[in-house]
Amino acid sequence: MTRSRALAAELHKTLTLPAAWAGVTVALLGSLLITVLNAYAVHADPSAVAFTAPLEVAFAAMPLGTVGATVIGVTVFSSEFTGERQITATLAAVPDRVLVLTAKAIVVVLLVAVTAVVTMPLTIGVARLMIGESVSIPEAVTRCLGAALYWILSGLIALAVTVFTRSGVVPMVVLIVNGSLVSFSLLLSKVSALGFWLPDMAGRRLFGDVPTVEGGLGVVPGALVMAGWTALLLVAAAAVFHRRDTMG
């Protein structure tokens, strides 16, 4: 009873938080906009070599979903520490901090998953309509499941990292830059194979057959490594959150 109520409270809190909806909007409208632009380019120049298939066009926009998931993961926790410090009210209502963090993690999974369910078919559908080529449904479903998993794990990693920092600024900047502009683990992978074992590089094949650097882990081992990182970071975050003074 207590658990389901804690989850209901966290769900209500997140669904009424404008910053969380900003994350959903980035994932949904951002992906859609990039898909439309790319599909238009393909449509205008059918002889273009790269990105001709609708699935490839749609999947080129998927990093925007990672950014959206990151925004959701960060703000679900950082919003507790801005202004009047809602965390005081949160912990007065639910003093079990592991329960609070678990409820927040479940909310991140649900919100990112629903965002993926809406965004992915929509972008693929738009790409298909504009380009006119057919899409293999089984391939699309498999790749969408992989990409959704990548988004969810990215959201959870963002949540865990924000528990350490409490402020949302640093994780937001670092994770968004890492997820969209320059991947630190990609750079590291150029000099050391260790880079392939960091979460975002390990999981990158979840998007399917997108152009990516050679080497590194395959889909399943990569997904397991990324999920392992996520679990490890969440457990460490729970331990820190459990021990730390609210103000300390």
Binding site: H12, T16, L17, P18, A19, S79, E84, T88
Partner: peptide, 15 residues
């Protein structure tokens, strides 16, 4: 303890 984006009722409702 209310987040600045919430109304009074919104804050009390999640509690």
């Amino acid at each position: 303890g209310a987040h600045r984006s919430r109304t009074a009722r919104g804050h009390l409702r999640w509690l």
